[in-house]
Design a protein around this nucleic acid. Structure first.
Lengths: 341, 341
DNA sequence: ACTTAGCACTCAAGTTAAGAGAGTGCTAAC
DNA sequence: GTTAGCACTCTCTTAACTTGAGTGCTAAGT
């Protein structure tokens, strides 16, 4: 489609625009020594590139700005191999490994780290909870009227739910907990149903009335468990992007990161481990049509995925960001595959 | 100090400025029928009010704007009795009582409600954890290498800490949990020390080596418990206040709400139940010297306080906001004193 | 001793005009 | 196919001018 020189010019235009944020003129490009052609020639090429839809002018007599299509070609032809230097690699790995015990905290930390290193907004998730098998469970008395139900999944996620449940001692709760986990262990959390819970009765006939009281409460609260936890970081970075410092847009953006459904929509698209980039209008969420969204997924143990989304203005340092995201993704996969233990 | 008419004029100026956000001129005030004096007279009075420091001009030939001192007098002489109508009272009470079991969720909800009703930023806290007595405790196995320590305080706050601790069965953890709670119950959480933990040994001689391994881990993790949990809501409201839509200020404000130390500083001033207002430079935190900060505390049971802070621009509807804050505070106090049970 | 009409004055904000600067497209020559 | 040259276009900045809201002060009225 594009000849070599056109590609080279397009790349120079986009590089310059990413650096400076101003429309790029023919003279600027012509100064590049590896090209050795005059601005007039560049103008001719630019006219062609514009006709093909890769760049456009914000107004007559202005330089050129890359279109979504232009960014697309640019991004697709980027070579990001081994860009990160050893220092940065060590930094990322050390920070992710430092002092965190809980898997979720590592993911949270990764989101923070990415936000800081890329200067963009980041959302990360930890593999879903409901589809995992239950590995432990405990009922803990917290007051005369309340009991805490703790659920532990086989990927070490812990969720707790407060139940309204009165007049039982911790001793009885311990017995019930033991019986429950014996009956439920290994079921996926979404598969726990009233039938399985009811098996309790056969174990603990002497507490039949307590259990009759507990079973519906348990069932209802299990229904309300949330699946994914999102870790959001770096929203503040949007406040300094000129494009978004407009107060109404900033407010909408803020809301975006607070709404679980939108985040879910964003995450549902991610099904594989590679790095995927959606530019401008390629995004399904209208609010993001001035943004680029970089997504990836890290492998959790062997068969589960955690997801990462990086959101920023279309004008971003794709090369640098892709390599940071990729290395962070790989490091998380490594950590969760256990190679650092 | 100020005669009746001056007070009346000052109030009119501030009311108008709060409504419109523009410097208030003498002609505007003179139109008020209850005053019946000409703009020239008002100008004279305004000159006096300015000399006394209650108002000032942003520039010569502009109308007047209230100074911090002016706002102070205005706020001190506000009468907020019974401003909230029955509908709003019912709304607040019902929302706070609806479907929430966990005390912390009620506080979180209250912060959200306040943010929505006032259009300002809100931070609320739940009574401190470390000074409370321990009421329950449980160790739960979450993987081969990790154990979750659950602590329940006598005010029903639950904290969990993940410990690196391997090679023990849930059965043994249950025994240890039982022994621990027997030895520690009633101690305040900050008073739990290695001496008290070590009593375990006498109870469970058969697991001495497990316990020797566990004790230092427990001690270290108890040190790292965080005291207060903050619920922040309504930051987004700052994005539409013209004064703060400046990107750098918005960013700083965002950071403010993320930094626990700053929030702690804000909360430490609150020691009593009444409504307190700090206007502009009355605030110790420099970033807030263009803001008014309204603080109050709700009573938790009989001897503990939870705190509420509302932050907005100095130009806010003090009357309305004070009454909403006050009613919410009272409702929380009522809920936690148990009168709705 | 207050109050008020009147007037000169000030300042911010909006409007207009001019000019500089960056960049383009096109043409004609190389 | 490339390039120098030139007329043209559009944004952005600056300065000058205008408008309008509001003030302070003075002098006359109550």
């Amino acid at each position: 489609m594009l000849n070599n020189r056109q590609q080279k010019i397009l790349k120079l235009i986009i590089d310059d625009f990413i650096d400076n944020g101003l429309p790029v003129g023919s003279r600027t490009i012509s100064k590049n020594p590896t090209l050795g052609i005059s601005s007039a020639t560049i103008r001719n090429e630019m006219a062609d590139l514009e006709e093909l839809g890769y760049i456009f002018q914000p107004h007559t007599s202005a330089g050129r700005i890359p279109s979504d299509l232009g960014y697309r070609l640019y991004v697709d032809s980027l070579d990001t191999e081994r860009l990160l230097d050893a220092d940065q690699r060590v930094l990322i790995r050390n920070l992710l490994l430092s002092g965190k015990i809980k898997a979720e905290e590592i993911v949270e930390k990764a989101a923070h780290l990415l936000a800081e290193m890329t200067g963009l907004a980041v959302v990360a998730s930890y593999p879903g909870f409901k589809k995992r098998a239950l590995s432990n469970l405990k009922l803990i008395k917290i007051s005369d009227t309340k009991v805490l139900l703790i659920l532990v999944s086989d990927n070490e996620v812990v969720k707790s739910i407060t139940l309204s449940f009165s007049g039982t001692s911790q001793d009885i709760l311990d017995l019930i907990s033991n019986s429950l986990i014996r009956n439920l262990e290994g079921s996926t959390i979404e598969d726990i149903d009233i039938k399985k819970i009811s098996r309790l009765k056969y174990d603990l006939r002497q507490f039949e009335n307590v259990i009759d009281y507990l079973v519906p409460i348990l069932r209802d609260s299990l229904k309300n468990i949330e699946d994914d936890e999102f870790y959001v970081d770096g929203f503040e970075n949007f406040l300094t992007v000129p494009e978004f410092s407009n107060s109404e847009k900033a407010r909408k953006m803020y809301r975006l990161f607070e709404e679980k459904e939108v985040l879910n929509e964003l995450f549902n698209d991610i099904q594989r481990e590679g790095i995927f980039i959606k530019i401008g209008d390629e995004n399904n969420i209208p609010l993001l049509n001035e943004c680029s969204v970089i997504t990836t997924a890290y492998r959790y143990r062997s068969n589960d995925l955690g997801k990462i989304v990086v959101i920023g203005p279309k004008r971003m340092d794709y090369r640098g960001i892709i390599s940071v995201v990729e290395y962070t993704r790989n490091t998380l996969s490594d950590i969760f595959s256990g190679i650092y233990l």
